[in-house]
Amino acid sequence: MDRWTEMELFVHVAESGSLSRAAELMDMSNASASRQLAALEERLGVRLVERNTRRLYLTDTGQEFFQRARSILADLRDAESTVNAAALNPTGTLRISASLSFSLHHIAPLLREYTERYPNVTVHVEAANRYLDIIDNNIDVAIRNREVEPDSNITIRRLAETRRVLTASPRYLAKHGFPKTLDELQRHHLLIYVHANNPYELRFTRGDESQTVAVKALLESNDGQILRA
């Protein structure tokens, strides 16, 4: 049992004057409570509680330890209450980093509801088509279009899947023809999103077969809206 639980058990014993009552409050058996109290005294190397057939009372050292332990546990409860209150009613600044396209299409539509729900939070959206350093720029949440982060201390959560689709406008195909083989793609004018995984490789699969084609860009950008336009 951890030290906090031992301390809490001892405080209950001191306040109630009863080991059985303390055991009941801690939801443990009398035997378990007695072992834990003995373990606490053994670890401290002092006698905290004296018992006789009629009552239980604290030693002088036990009385001093009780005062300090009760104060420590009160501070711990206050700290937990403060954290719980902050979780229910957060304050401060939430700094979010994402690409301009993602910010416009996915983050911006949520901001009104979020600020109404958490009016004490200031939201700062850093719409950047480059991957800012999360630590150096004090970013709380970064939406990334890649699977890994160079900094191993960053916690990564997979939010959704995205895929690249090979497309062309009818006007382009009318002018340049429709590629009939993968090798012909190397002769076509491609627009590349540079933040994609392996942006200069196109991987095609059919059944159990797969083939990767190296491509060059006529135009490349770190923003999908530019490529789409």
Rank of each mutant, 00 (worst) to 15 (best):
D2S: 13
M7F: 09
M7D: 06
L9D: 01
H12S: 06
V13P: 00
V13N: 01
G17L: 07
A23M: 03
A23E: 03
D27K: 05
M28T: 00
S32Q: 07
S34L: 07
R35K: 15
Q36L: 09
A38G: 01
E41N: 06
E41A: 12
L44R: 05
G45W: 03
V46K: 00
R47K: 13
R47W: 11
L48W: 06
R51E: 13
T53V: 11
R54E: 15
Q63T: 11
E64S: 11
F65A: 05
A69W: 04
S71I: 08
S71Q: 06
S71T: 09
I72H: 02
I72L: 10
I72D: 02
L73T: 07
L73R: 02
D75P: 02
D75Q: 03
D78R: 12
A87K: 02
N89Q: 13
P90A: 07
G92N: 00
T93M: 03
L94R: 00
R95K: 13
I96D: 04
S101L: 08
S103D: 08
S103I: 05
L104D: 11
H105M: 14
H105N: 12
I107C: 03
I107L: 15
L110K: 06
L111C: 11
R112E: 15
Y114V: 14
E116A: 10
N120C: 08
N120V: 04
T122V: 10
V123L: 08
V125K: 02
V125S: 00
A127L: 06
A128V: 15
A128Q: 08
A128W: 09
N129Y: 07
L132D: 01
I134V: 14
I135R: 09
N137V: 04
N138S: 15
I139M: 04
N145S: 13
V148C: 06
D151F: 05
I156L: 09
R158E: 15
R158I: 07
A160Y: 11
E161N: 06
E161A: 08
T162N: 09
R163F: 12
R163M: 12
V165N: 06
T167F: 11
T167C: 12
R171S: 14
L173Y: 09
A174G: 14
K175Q: 09
P179F: 05
L182A: 03
E184F: 04
L185D: 02
L185T: 04
R187W: 06
R187H: 13
R187S: 15
I192V: 13
P199R: 01
E201G: 01
L202R: 01
R203T: 15
R203H: 15
R206F: 15
R206A: 14
G207F: 07
D208Y: 08
D208I: 09
S210C: 03
K216R: 14
A217E: 08
L218T: 14
L219S: 04
L219Q: 12
E220N: 08
D223V: 07
Q225C: 09
L227A: 09
A229Y: 07
